[in-house]
Every structure is written in C-alpha cells, then in structure tokens.
Computed example of a mutant assay.
Amino acid sequence: MYKLRGHHLLCLLGYRGMGYSAEYIENMTRLHHTLRLNPDTIIHLIDGPDHLCEKYPNSGKYHCQDNDIYKRDALILEKLHLKVGKKMQWKEIENSIRKHIFPSDLVNVCETCSWRSYGVCEEGIKQIQQGKGLREVK
C-alpha cells in the first residue's frame, strides 16, 4: 500500500522520468512502474506529505508543506470525488480520473505547477481516458 496526496494522483499520469533529484526520480519511477504493472495496488489517500514527498530533496524550501500544495490536493480530490482517508486500488483512481478529469482542467487544478508547461500531464490524462493506463517510463 502506498500513501498519496491529491495532486500526486495527477503527477503520476504525466511522469516521464524527470524530477527534483536522482533519489526522487528513482522513488517516483519505482512507484509509477508498480502502479502501471499492478493496478490493483492499494492507495491510501492522505492529507500532507506522502510516499513521494519522502524523497523530495532537502535543499531550500520544502514545498510539500506549502499551503498552495494543500489547496491543490484538496481541489484535485474534490474534482475526482474522492476523500482523504479512503483506501482504494489504483485502477479505481484511474476510473475516477477517466470520469471526472479532462486535459483542460489542468489550467485550473494545476495552475501554479512548474511541470505543467511540458504538456505531459495532458497526454497522461488522454491516455487514461483511452483506457491505456500509465505510460511506460524507462
């Protein structure tokens, strides 16, 4: 079981092997690979720093505790019709994304995210909408 916060549910869709540090990338790649190959994996939705935040580099401001990140988490969970504390399979999260999130939503729900400019999250949402699951990351 993995603990994830709201916005990381969408970050995983756009993940392409880039990140904040080698340790962060290794952690994110491992989780992404697990979910892609085993969509029955249980996710516990939490409020605050999660499994991915554990490997965020300790250099400067720790953005995982930033109020804007908490707001983004809440907004995304609301949009997905999910609640903090819920435990569910990754494939159920994908189903919720398929029903409730569209690429155009990222303008609002991920407004301040620096990764949004790459356009990979929109591609990831489209892939989920097409029933393809997470894209392979090598």
Rank of each mutant, 00 (worst) to 15 (best):
91 K>R: 14
125 I>E: 04
111 E>R: 12
108 N>H: 10
62 Y>W: 12
8 H>I: 00
10 L>A: 07
95 N>E: 11
95 N>S: 12
94 E>C: 13
66 D>S: 03
80 L>K: 01
31 L>H: 00
87 K>H: 05
35 L>E: 06
96 S>V: 00
69 I>E: 06
57 P>I: 11
117 S>Q: 09
20 Y>K: 06
91 K>D: 13
35 L>G: 12
25 I>G: 04
67 N>R: 01
133 G>R: 07
25 I>F: 11
134 L>W: 07
62 Y>P: 09
73 D>V: 12
53 C>N: 00
48 G>E: 00
29 T>R: 15
24 Y>L: 02
57 P>M: 15
68 D>Y: 08
7 H>I: 14
99 K>C: 04
105 D>V: 14
92 E>F: 08
25 I>D: 05
131 G>N: 15
124 G>M: 15
14 G>E: 08
128 I>E: 08
113 C>D: 00
52 L>Y: 00
115 W>Q: 05
94 E>K: 09
10 L>W: 13
57 P>L: 14
91 K>V: 09
113 C>N: 01
83 K>D: 01
70 Y>W: 08
127 Q>I: 14
112 T>C: 02
116 R>N: 07
101 I>R: 15
66 D>W: 05
133 G>H: 04
51 H>S: 07
72 R>Y: 03
105 D>N: 13
114 S>W: 05
11 C>I: 11
39 P>A: 05
84 V>D: 11
127 Q>C: 15
41 T>N: 12
103 P>K: 15
50 D>L: 10
78 E>W: 12
67 N>M: 00
85 G>C: 11
124 G>P: 03
19 G>V: 08
35 L>K: 05
39 P>M: 09
79 K>E: 07
55 K>F: 14
115 W>A: 09
113 C>P: 01
116 R>E: 10
54 E>A: 08
63 H>L: 09
106 L>W: 15
100 H>I: 13
90 W>T: 03
132 K>H: 04
114 S>Y: 06
109 V>G: 10
37 L>N: 06
59 S>Y: 13
16 R>W: 02
130 Q>E: 02
86 K>P: 02
104 S>G: 13
34 T>V: 08
103 P>H: 14
62 Y>G: 14
99 K>Y: 10
62 Y>E: 04
47 D>C: 10
104 S>K: 10
41 T>I: 08
94 E>I: 10
56 Y>T: 12
93 I>E: 02
92 E>S: 02
105 D>W: 10
37 L>S: 03
89 Q>K: 13
86 K>W: 03
66 D>L: 04
79 K>A: 06
32 H>T: 14
102 F>C: 03
95 N>P: 07
27 N>L: 00
40 D>Q: 15
8 H>A: 05
51 H>L: 08
7 H>S: 09
47 D>W: 15
114 S>A: 04
71 K>W: 06
40 D>G: 11
129 Q>W: 07
